[in-house]
């Protein structure tokens, strides 16, 4: 095959090994979640036993429910704020405090989570806010809106501006031009941003541990406290369910970016 002619044997080997390294551990985890044996290392045949155990564990179910509510709410607020921020940065030209603004948006992407978590907690304590659902939601929104902003901004940057200009030349007010021309074009990136925010929130342990209160643990907090005590087959089952949920989310997000790539460049890599 000529199209593969640029690949050396070394390239093929590193690709194969790299992908195996990325996927094998997850695959093993999923397979062992169907293991009938209590010992994680002994294969006792296929079984759904650990899934039954999970659905009977009310603390885990409650934590899952809490996580899903936080993820949905925070992803929605984050998408709204993140999109606004992206529009301001890519269409707003210069405004006062712009450097500070972009700095505040990009820093949380790499900021160690212990710092973000601790600082938000101290704020909530100073405000005397009752810690629980809303404090975690606000904390997650603060983190994930930055990811949304990057995804949407990268889409806005690759967009052909003449479309907006044409709309306005034809007499559209700027806001109207944005709503009826730009917004539909960046919609796939906005959907992808929501999905990313949702999965990040569902995944977060550190920030949630700092900002939640007694009695409102999220799923990662519960999983973490179980994992510290050792491997339990039930955790494999929960993990598999989370992976399945996220897989569905990824399929939807990639369908959305398919839509966007048929209209131009594809959405941001994240």
């Amino acid at each position: 095959m000529r199209q593969f002619s640029r690949l050396s044997r070394f390239n093929v080997a590193s690709l194969a090994l790299g992908l195996a390294f990325l996927y094998l551990p997850i695959l093993i985890l999923v397979i062992y979640s169907f293991n009938a044996s209590r010992l994680v290392t002994v294969w006792g045949g296929w079984s759904l036993r650990w899934y039954h155990e999970f659905f009977a564990d009310s603390a885990m179910i409650e934590a899952s429910w809490m996580s899903l509510r936080v993820a949905t709410t925070s992803a929605t607020i984050a998408t709204l704020l993140g999109t606004l921020a992206a529009v301001a940065l890519s269409r707003g030209e210069r405004f006062r405090g712009r450097t500070l603004f972009s700095g505040m948006l990009y820093a949380p992407l790499v900021m160690p989570e212990v710092i973000t978590g601790l600082s938000l907690l101290l704020l909530f304590v100073a405000l005397n806010a009752e810690r629980g659902f809303w404090t975690v939601t606000i904390a997650h929104t603060t983190l994930t809106m930055c990811f949304v902003a990057v995804v949407v901004q990268s889409r806005l940057g690759s967009l052909d501006r003449s479309l907006e200009e044409a709309a306005m030349d034809l007499g559209c007010a700027p806001v109207r031009a944005f709503l009826s021309v730009t917004l539909p074009l960046i919609a796939p990136a906005i959907v992808a941003g929501w999905m990313l925010a949702f999965t990040l929130s569902l995944d977060d342990l550190v920030i949630a541990s700092f900002t939640t209160g007694p009695g409102s643990a999220t799923l990662p907090i519960r999983i973490y406290s179980e994992v510290r005590l050792g491997v339990k087959p039930e955790i494999n089952a929960i993990s598999t369910l989370v992976i399945a949920l996220i897989a569905v989310v990824i399929v939807i997000a990639s369908l959305a970016s398919k839509l966007s790539s048929s209209q131009g460049e594809s959405a941001a890599p994240l």
Binding site: L22, Y23, P25, I26, I28, L29, Y32, V40, L196, T199, L202, D203, L205, P220, I223, Y224, V227, V231, I235, N236, S239, V242, I243, I246, V249, I250, L270
Partner: peptide
């Protein structure tokens, strides 16, 4: 893999 849970990926390695 970046989208799948961070904690779960670490847990997968504890298994192994």
């Amino acid at each position: 893999p970046f989208w799948t849970s961070f904690l779960i990926r670490i847990y997968a390695w504890i298994n192994i």
